[in-house]
């Protein structure tokens, strides 16, 4: 993994990284990927992937409103709100 790969991934993941950190991340991530690539020692053709250990199916919830308005409580510790809105730098479309 090169610094440029790290920059691309950091951009996708929205993580600010200094140019000076890119090299170190690149070498650490390369080491981790080298560990991960030990998987390739095994031929897994035809093996069904396992996403959940218990292999159960989704339970369904009755269509009932159970949640009261808790806006004040939820916004008490929010970084920036006004008139009930969460505020962010201007969204341009």
């Amino acid at each position: 993994m090169q610094s440029s790969d790290v920059a691309r991934i950091a951009h996708l993941a929205k993580l600010a990284t200094d140019a000076s950190e890119l090299e170190q991340y690149a070498s650490e991530l390369t080491a981790i990927l080298t560990l991960v690539e030990q998987m390739n020692r095994l031929d897994t053709a035809g093996v069904e992937p396992l996403a959940h250990p218990l292999e159960l199916t989704q339970r369904l919830r009755p269509d009932v409103v159970t949640e009261p308005d808790q806006r004040e409580g939820f916004q008490r510790h929010a970084p920036l709100t006004e008139d009930g809105f969460y505020l962010v730098p201007r969204v341009i479309e």
């Binding site: 920036l80 006004e82 008139d83 009930g84 809105f85 969460y86 505020l87 962010v88 730098p89 201007r90 969204v91």
Partner: peptide
Amino acid sequence: HLGGGRLSGID
């Protein structure tokens, strides 16, 4: 009026 017009509100 939101954030002095510089910010967007999220609902």
